[in-house]
Write a protein that binds this DNA or RNA. Structure first.
Lengths: 205, 205
DNA sequence: GTCTATAGCCAGATAGAC
DNA sequence: GTCTATCTGGCTATAGAC
């Protein structure tokens, strides 16, 4: 197989996925028709169905790429560049990263909610969303554990337990951010992030 | 206007709304067709369209009744029956109430997510969901403020600020609960509630 | 108010030329 | 691989008898 072809296919898929994401952001997943995606991508029906076998596959592809290289990577970068990182810093970094993501000038939250809802009735998407959330949570656990041990002198067992609970809290703060950002047009993201960070920072193991 | 008729109409609307909710829980909002709702309600197309002018109106009706008389009322009841109520108790009560709600043996969360997603692209539903979340949050603020003043001797100003931040946290814990309950079939609700409560309880103004 | 039957539409997906 | 043209099916909503 010539390597150019593989590359080419990936590019086309990315092009289609990005177009679909823009449509989803503008109209929601199930108000977006294939015609919309076709028009937005600049391709034709035939071309698109050559790369994806259904709208559902495109939707999954959007889900797979939407936060790729964002939240988790930002958190991991934070850990490698600094010393022990507390939960407040982790949350701040994650939320700011989530906040800066855009699809055609719309916040990611609008699309993420759609995908979560879709996941409830689509097994493939559900597994994908689970993986992403679990991956982020796991990314939180390590630093928090280390922080509890090194900064607060906790035993490994207590540190692990603490990290488990706090990481859950951080995930909820992140999902809470997504929901409210999507549902309240006047949602004060800055204040949410600042308040969340302050509250979390005030907690010690 | 005879009063029986008004009552009758309400009953029919409730019947249709309940049937729709069951469908939404089973198949998701946009995989549910009018035929599904018709079959589930035991009525006919004509009958249904006599009470609702579109599927969208039915969806809004489901949204309006789904958590009616649950979360908020439970929290308020707690406040009137006991003395000052701390944030941990508030959250526990709210989550347990959310947890006990069912639509045809399915958790409420599955339907709530669908409605949130729909709200992003439906103005009416969006306003409704905003109201519900705001109402619950406001229901949290009062008790928390009182608790901060009476139990921890905070000044009114500091108590108010604290209540504002903590109520936001509680809302996020609740939305986080909904998301994870819907996305993870093996989600450990008991542990979530217990952990959340413990963490919140450990926080003082 | 409720029924059955169906209009009318638009969705997702395919066929076949290039 | 991509295009245009089109099929098929199911959807929401309505018409009109009772």
């Amino acid at each position: 197989m010539p390597k150019v072809t593989e590359q080419y296919k990936d590019n086309r898929r990315a092009q289609i996925t990005a177009a679909a994401a823009r449509c989803f952001a503008a109209k929601g997943v199930h108000r977006t028709s294939m015609s919309d995606i076709i028009a937005e991508s600049g391709l034709s029906a035939g071309a698109i169905y050559n790369h994806f076998k259904s709208k559902q596959e495109i939707t999954v592809s959007v889900g797979a790429t939407l936060i790729k290289g964002r939240v988790l990577e930002a958190v991991q970068a934070l850990e490698s560049e600094a010393g022990p990182v507390g939960p407040g810093q982790l949350l701040g970094r994650a939320l700011r990263e989530l906040d800066s993501g855009r699809v055609d000038d719309q916040p990611l939250s609008a699309v993420i909610i759609q995908l979560w809802a879709e996941a409830v009735v689509d097994e493939t998407l559900m597994v994908l969303m689970q993986q992403q959330i679990r991956t982020i949570r796991t990314g939180f656990v390590g630093p928090i554990k280390r922080w509890a041990r090194e900064v607060h002198g906790q035993t490994p067992a207590r540190a692990a337990r603490w990290a488990d609970e706090v990481s859950q809290l951080l995930i909820s703060m992140a999902t809470g951010y997504v929901i409210q950002r999507a549902l309240f047009p006047d949602f004060d993201r800055r204040k949410y992030i600042a308040d969340a960070q302050r509250i979390i920072t005030s907690m010690t193991p």
